[in-house]
Amino acid sequence: MKRKSTKFVIAGVIIFLAIGFMIYSSINRYSGFYLKPGELVAKGESAYGEQLRLNGKVAANSVDWKPEIPRLKFKITDGKTTIPVVYKDLPPDTFKEGVEVVIEGVYTKEGTFKASSLLAKCPSKYESKKKEKK
């Protein structure tokens, strides 16, 4: 009687350990820092070449979009620090100056951020208006 259920407990534990190990080994490999431009610059040289996410606003008068290449250049800012960004894909609909964006990619030695993905926050117009009124 006892031995039969032990078998299952062992099998179950092995499965959970295997899944746990998969989670553990993948989470460090596929997670990256989530920074503001100022924090990125503060990290200095250690930030070069590492896959990370950057969150900030699209700086005013910084967007340079060449659809025929395609190549999008703009600057991302947290109000104090500004970093130039290059992105070789189409910007999302919600992308425009002043909007909050999350970009993922690599920071290069030249001080440019090469983005491989670009997400613009969904229009927060309603929310922000609400806040103004309060």
Binding site: I19, M22, I23, S26, I27, R29, Y30, S31, G32, F33, Y34, L35, R53, E104
Partner: peptide, 14 residues
């Protein structure tokens, strides 16, 4: 205290 993100590759991998 550090902000990080977990990308789709993690989920796909697991």
């Amino acid at each position: 205290g550090t902000k990080i993100t977990v990308g789709p590759p993690f989920f796909n991998q697991v």
